[in-house]
């Protein structure tokens, strides 16, 4: 008799597929939020698996701030065309036109307008009742408190003190008029699981995850790419071998010094990492509970 047991990666995969299928079966108009990063790539593959040999069952939606890396836009368009998914791109055009920028407007405010605001507007505009996101509990302390199916009120807000109980694999997907649900099929995955899975499944990812020489300036220990336009003119530009561990907007996403040019090297690096994954994300560093605050406002 075979052992009838699944490796932990396959267990995570099966759990995520179960969640994705529940969403498609029970919501009227679900959407998958697509941020172009590695977690999104994994989430897309899981959806392909969940509905195979059927078609990709929901549109992908990218909330664009206009400040993403050029490689991300290139990758996004090619990737979505290849998998045959419908791509919706939404922006807060009004505030982008007004010149909203983290350095001028402030990081928190810029995020609130260009990401949270744009997301809530887009969900309303398209009438989406469930939005799948690639957030993981391991990433950040307030995310560690999230349910898989996270209920949001009519304003997209999260009430962490009053979450629905979530039992076994039985998800309560019922919502009242105006409410929406954020669903996190990767809740139980860690950064390392994501990379192991990308390797196992040969999932395409944006090339800036790999190390190469980049022109940066070093500010408070964070490597800021010159390309970002967020560079203080008084600081010296250096050419450093580095990569991006997680992807966000250029002005707020630092690189990390790294020699990892292959998946195996990245996995090795993640395994022995001394710092957490979002160390280079300016958005998390503004206060002790900045992520919780953003989530309460409707962020992921």
């Amino acid at each position: 008799m075979s052992s009838f047991s699944l490796s932990y990666l396959k267990q995570l995969e099966s759990e995520s597929i179960h969640i994705l299928r529940e969403v498609v079966a029970e919501f009227k108009n679900p959407v998958m939020l697509y941020s172009v990063g590695k977690d999104s790539s994994v989430m897309v593959r899981l959806a392909q698996k969940a509905f195979y040999p059927g078609k990709f069952p929901f549109p992908l939606m990218h909330i664009d701030t206009g400040y993403k890396f050029p490689e991300m836009y290139e990758f996004r368009d090619a990737f979505c065309a290849k998998i045959g998914a419908k791509l919706i791109v939404e922006k807060n055009e009004e505030w982008i036109a007004k010149g909203c920028h983290p350095l001028k407007t402030g990081v928190d405010k810029c995020c609130s307008l260009l990401k949270t605001g744009a997301l809530l507007d887009a969900l309303r505009k398209h009438g989406f009742d469930a939005a799948l996101g690639g957030a993981r509990r391991e990433e950040e302390k307030s995310r560690a408190k999230e349910r898989v199916f996270s209920l949001r009120d009519a304003f997209g807000q999260w009430d962490p003190k009053n979450q629905r109980p979530e039992l076994w694999d039985i998800y309560n997907t019922r919502i009242n008029e105006g409410e929406t649900v954020r669903v996190f099929p990767l809740s139980n995955w860690t950064e390392q699981d994501i990379w192991e899975y990308i390797k196992l499944e040969q999932i395409p990812i944006v090339p800036i995850y790999f190390a190469r020489k980049r022109e940066v300036i070093i500010s408070n220990g964070i490597l800021i790419p010159v390309l970002s336009g967020a560079v203080d003119a008084h600081k010296k530009v250096k050419s450093v071998l580095c990569r991006f561990r997680s992807l966000g907007c250029m002005p707020c996403t630092g690189a990390i010094a790294s020699v990892a040019t292959t998946l195996d090297e990245i996995i090795g690096e993640v395994r022995s990492a001394k710092k957490s994954e979002r160390e280079n994300r300016v958005i998390d560093l503004t206060s002790d509970s900045s992520m919780e605050q953003k989530k309460k406002e409707g962020y992921f």
Partner: peptide, 29 residues
């Protein structure tokens, strides 16, 4: 303090809701 993910928990020194944590050893996740 590592575990109290919510501001209210840190303020009051209590745990309000279930939190999930991940670790591994060479044998198991």
């Amino acid at each position: 303090y590592l575990l109290d993910g919510l501001a209210a928990e840190r303020e009051q020194g209590i745990t309000i809701d279930v939190a999930y944590r991940y670790f591994e050893t060479p044998k198991r996740k």
